[in-house]
Amino acid sequence: MWFPIGPAQPTDVWMQDTRVPLDVVWIRDGRVTGVVTLQPCTSDPCPRESSPGAVDAILEAPAGTFAGTKPGTVITIDNN
């Protein structure tokens, strides 16, 4: 799932009622700034994971999708 954020800003994600682990990719200006794998959460409140600075997008995918992806990796989004 793609989440554009504008303007770029620090942001948090959490896994409330999520059923599967997810990779969260933090993005700024088309480059990865960080990747974290988060586990489902059933507590209330769920812990929050903060971005590594200001970001302008978040990409979420099944856990392991972005294994080995490093900060600085270029992300290209095809709007078609």
Score class of each variant (00 low, 15 high):
18 T>H: 13
2 W>K: 14
44 D>G: 01
4 P>G: 10
63 A>M: 09
79 N>A: 10
57 A>P: 00
59 L>Q: 08
3 F>M: 08
53 G>L: 05
48 R>D: 11
29 D>L: 07
28 R>N: 09
56 D>E: 02
37 T>G: 08
55 V>L: 06
43 S>M: 08
78 D>L: 02
70 K>E: 12
14 W>I: 00
75 I>R: 14
14 W>N: 12
35 V>M: 08
19 R>L: 13
44 D>Y: 03
59 L>I: 13
47 P>R: 12
28 R>T: 03
68 G>H: 01
61 A>H: 00
70 K>W: 01
73 T>G: 02
5 I>W: 03
58 I>Q: 10
27 I>L: 07
74 V>A: 15
38 L>I: 05
70 K>A: 15
76 T>K: 13
31 R>S: 08
61 A>E: 00
27 I>C: 01
54 A>H: 06
61 A>I: 00
56 D>M: 03
26 W>P: 06
1 M>R: 11
10 P>A: 14
57 A>T: 00
37 T>M: 10
5 I>K: 09
18 T>E: 15
4 P>H: 08
73 T>Y: 03
33 T>S: 09
54 A>L: 06
23 D>F: 02
9 Q>A: 12
16 Q>S: 11
22 L>F: 02
66 F>L: 09
24 V>N: 12
69 T>D: 02
36 V>S: 13
11 T>L: 13
5 I>V: 12
49 E>R: 11
74 V>N: 04
51 S>T: 05
80 N>T: 10
6 G>I: 00
48 R>F: 05
30 G>K: 06
48 R>A: 14
62 P>R: 10
65 T>S: 11
34 G>I: 04
55 V>E: 07
53 G>E: 03
51 S>F: 04
19 R>S: 12
2 W>R: 15
44 D>L: 01
46 C>A: 03
2 W>H: 15
57 A>E: 00
52 P>A: 12
62 P>N: 11
4 P>Y: 07
62 P>Y: 03
66 F>D: 06
25 V>F: 03
25 V>N: 06
42 T>M: 10
45 P>F: 00
66 F>Y: 12
50 S>R: 15
45 P>W: 01
59 L>P: 07
71 P>E: 08
74 V>I: 11
37 T>D: 07
29 D>Y: 05
57 A>R: 01
16 Q>A: 15
76 T>N: 11
78 D>A: 04
40 P>G: 09
20 V>A: 14
8 A>R: 08
59 L>M: 12
44 D>Q: 06
59 L>S: 09
5 I>H: 05
40 P>A: 08
35 V>P: 10
1 M>E: 10
45 P>V: 00
10 P>D: 06
2 W>C: 11
11 T>I: 15
67 A>H: 05
